[in-house]
Design a protein around this nucleic acid. Sequence first.
RNA 1: GGCCCGUUGGUCAAGCGGUUAAGACACCGGCCUCUCACGCCGGUAACACCAGUUCGAUUCUGGUACGGGUCACCA
Length: 544
Amino acid sequence: MDYNALANLLFPDVTAQPEDMENRFPQRELPAGACVTRIGPSPTGFVHLGNLYNALIGERLAHQSGGVFYLRIEDTDNKREVEGAVETVISAMSYFGVNFDEGAVSGGDNGNYGPYRQRQREEIYHVFAKHLVQRGLAYPCFLTAEEIDVIREKQTANKENPGIYGEYAACRDLSIDQVKENISAGKEWVLRYRGVQTDEYIAVEDAVRGKLEMPRNNMDFVLLKSDGIPTYHFAHVVDDHLMRSTHVIRGEEWLSSLPMHVELFGALGWEMPIYCHTATLMKMEGTGKRKLSKRKDPELALSYYQQEGISADSIWEFLLTVLNSNFEEWRIANPDADYRDFPYTLEKMSISGALVDLDKLRNISKDVIGRMTAENVYKNWLSWCEEYDQTFAELIKKYPERTVAALNVGKGGNKPRKDLETWKQACVFMSFYYDETFTVADEMPEECDEETRKLFFAKYLESYDHADDSSAWFDKVKTITDELGFAVKPKDYKKNPDQFKGSIVHITNMLRIALTGRANAPDIHEVSHVLGEDIVRNRIKNWL
RNA sequence: GGCCCGUUGGUCAAGCGGUUAAGACACCGGCCUCUCACGCCGGUAACACCAGUUCGAUUCUGGUACGGGUCACCA
């Protein structure tokens, strides 16, 4: 068989040689130990948590080592592509603070190793495809989907492994004339790798899983589809080699196709990148765990976290705790450090499927927002509101000073409050600071009847001096409490409930509900000073 | 079904032949306190199973069970 003739028949227009590609995309000049990583999402319009999870690993590895982190769009499946999906990926990554050094950007590419969209790299793949044909390692296959179905049925009946290999690879040894004939008859063809029939094993060192042993590939898998676009397998090998990736980070669902990739790297004579197969994110259902599913679990979509207003930092910290078991300890030891200072390592990666624990995320989120300055909270919250809650955005822009002051409530001291979990919840929690959104949600305590209420509020207003400091203010509250026959010390009331109408707890609750509309809210004195004297007096007057 | 990966409390997880088997979240008590939140103190709770190696296995080996992944011209 004249493989050269076959190659020219299949790829008449390809003149470039593999060396030309090597020269076009030279080795990167980076410091020793620098990692080059990437994410390769396919533009389906759906970005999952798993995408972000792998992105974080790549980002950390690259940027911790002075390397490069890039975005490659894996759009080889034109059937699945959704319009605008590339923008969706880019904006989601940007929302969560994942920054690329090069790769696909809105409207184009940025970097010297592009194009970064696989559909635009067709000519590059064809150079290597032709080269493989010339060496007898790849061949055109004219099998139709129906013919393949028949083969599969036969294999299943015989309890053999399904697939095109060995004797089932009907087009393996077509003569060049037969190929010519098929082509001129208009038959479609795919390019298949010529798999070696063997039962030997290969060993691959995975950076998170250690040594992996699996059977060597024996399949005649597809390299180029009938439209000339490569399959994932071929594109991955060519791209990660030419873009000079040092580490390939991907989900464990790729483990079973690893033998194909190893085979191709071998056939092309290239050094393999370091593989890092990460665990699948799981979810609790009933008594067991299961993989997060796109249809059933809204929390799989990144858009869910955006809509809920989970801050980008919270997601980072959450994923970091899942990714590296020592992150939490590090965080406790370094409460104020930037998470980017955490020394991330692949060795500390967990290999079993982690459960997405929304409770834990909430807890982390409270800490993260609690650590922010009021100004930063304001900024982040506002930018979320501008996207998802315009009316609240208007409101906090109308009262910026009051809002920042409100966000500062409870920040002082060494036990700062942690009231805010998400930006969405912040809109609920903060609503009492604005007359526009203020509502009385809770009932007055039953110990305070209408007469007590009117009496208390009248006395309170009368003695109220906005300039009082916290203790002067509270002394006045205590005085009125006593005058009304309520216990000044809660413990006294607890001991002798019959001697009092109630305790100061009920009195302050009543005051708190008048001011904030709810029984649970931050320090009354502090809140009053955020609201300002007019609002305080008005809200109390409503109860007279 | 073949191949591959995994299995420590409810969840995330330390551990890498000898430990009272860390820690975090959640949960339950208590303290603090003008409510809530925060914080602090305490509590419940785990090595899937069976063999083997060993003086000794959570840790090493084999098998079983269970869970997961994958077997496309999808990634």
